[in-house]
Every structure is written in C-alpha cells, then in structure tokens.
Design a protein around this nucleic acid. Sequence first.
DNA 1: CACAACTATATTGCGCACAATCGAATAGCG
DNA 2: CGCTATTCGATTGTGCGCAATATAGTTGTG
Lengths: 151, 151
Amino acid sequence: MSGRTYPQLSLDLQLCFPLYAATRAVTKRYVTLLKGTGLTYPQYLVMLVLWESEEPLSVTTLGQRLRLDSGTLTPLLKRLETAGLVQRDRDPADERRVLVSLTDDGRAMEEQVSGVPEQLGQSMGITRDEALALRDQLTELVDHLDTAESS
Amino acid sequence: MSGRTYPQLSLDLQLCFPLYAATRAVTKRYVTLLKGTGLTYPQYLVMLVLWESEEPLSVTTLGQRLRLDSGTLTPLLKRLETAGLVQRDRDPADERRVLVSLTDDGRAMEEQVSGVPEQLGQSMGITRDEALALRDQLTELVDHLDTAESS
DNA sequence: CACAACTATATTGCGCACAATCGAATAGCG
DNA sequence: CGCTATTCGATTGTGCGCAATATAGTTGTG
C-alpha cells in the first residue's frame, strides 16, 4: 500500500503547478480590476509598454519587451485599434515595419487604470519588499530557462 | 523632461510581468522536454494528478485539483482519450459524472517522463530549497488572490 | 540594375482558459 | 410520488500563445 513508483513526479507537481496557477489567478484578478476599461490582461501589458515609451513602437519591439510574437500581437493590436486606443501605421522609412502609437483615448486611459497596481498589491497580500524579491527570483528563473532552451 | 505621470504603472509591469513571462518560459521548456510523449504541459499536469491518485477521478475532482473548469478539461480529456492514454466512462452510481481513468498506455507513460522534473530543475537553475521557498510564496499568493476574488 | 539573402509583419492552425449557457440526471422536500 | 432546486458535464464563443508558413519590403553583392 502507498508509496509512489516515481515520487519525483508528485514533487514536480508541487513545484511547477503553483507557478501556473498563480499566473491564472493573477490574470483572473486583472479581469475584475480592468472591467470597465474593456482591456484584457495582455492588452493591459501592451498599453503599459506604450505608456512607458511615449514613442511609437514597432511590433517587433513590443514583442521583445513582452516576449510575445506577431501571431499573438497582430490580432491583439487590431482589437486595440478597433477599440480606438492605438493606431497602426507603416513606417515610411521602412515599410516592413508597423508602428504602434497611442490615440488620445489610449493616452487618457492611463489615468483610469492608475489605481490598479495598488489594488492588485492588496489582493496579493504581500509587502512591497516581498513582491520585489519574488520579481527578482522569477526574472532569474526566466533568464535561466531562456538560455537552457536555446542550448 | 522625463518622469512618468503614473510611476506605479511601470512598477506594476515589473511586478506582474515576470510571473506571466515565467509561466510561458516554463511551458515552453516543457514542450521541449515532453516532445516524444506528445503531451502538452496542461495534459502532463492532468496525467500527474491521475498517476498520483491511482483511482478514477471525476472531471470535477480533476478540475478542483488543477483549478480548471470543464470548458478546458472536456476537450483536453477527449484528446487524451483519442491518444489512448485515458478512458472516460459515466459513473454508474451517478450518471452525471464522468470518471477518468488511466489506460495501460497511460500508466506506462509515467516511467517515460520520470526524468522530466530533474531536467526542468536543471533548466531553472535553482536549488531544491529555493524551489520549495518559491512554491510556498506562490501558493500563498494564489490563496490570497482567491479570497480577494470572491470578496 | 538584377538577384539572392534577409527582415518584418501577417496568416493559419492547434490547444488552452474561461465565462455563459444548456441539458441531463439526481436529490430533497412536501 | 411529483415537483423544484441543485449538480455535473458538455457546448459555445472570445481571446490569447505559439509554431510554421507566406508575403512584402529591404539590403548587400556583383
């Protein structure tokens, strides 16, 4: 009775599943916090990058910052364009590029979501320092996985 | 020049984006490690739960363990059934339930992936203790978010 | 200038993830 | 027993996430 043949497989569940579940829990929380803006969580992340740059960004640049490819970004950006938050124009200097810029409505939305980070922080129930430490651990983890993947 | 109107929004990117990116990086790594089995990462998680239980589980029970609903699980389980790894049968005692059980092929796959956790651990570049600490932090975070969501 | 190699974005196809809804089956109550 | 409320799962529709591929545009070479 009892005793697994491969105990490391249940340990694996304990290690990786919380990461998976945490992302979905955060995403779910964002749906609630962003209701009213019409933004999804990935759309919100794209808007954050655009608010931060204050310059039009190419799809490739956006993808590098967010680690997303064009298959994800193109339809997402089209939805943001339909919503009137961003504008997509070919770069006259290189017509292969599409430059994504904020519309006035898109810029105006920044103020509307300015309270979201604090609300999320409260929902996560961790201090600022804990959050920063967690961020560093996760960033390091991503870096390791990226180099492991390419080897 | 410079200085954001809402600096908390760039901090937010630093806090939540790594979590989001980490999950995708882990998933991507699993694709590589599981190539050869034909399993996706969510399918692998379902198989882990089934290997651990050694008893048929209802769709609801699987969903509770993995925090997934039937809209995600039903098609996923049908793919596993098509692949010949699991079997789906109505519970004779309550015909609303569908009991998911492993086939011989499904059970046999456990040995095939028994090395995956160690390979992933190496790719993540963290010690066992760090991984356990991270797991605990993430689990706590999920618990907080769950209670915040329902309030 | 012609042409091959390269780059940027778009498209397609598959597999989640989840909200909303539906229908079948069961349980509970009078 | 008959009726209502509940439970379970399947279905539908939307939005990612990404691999593979296609296409348009650019750059480098001779």
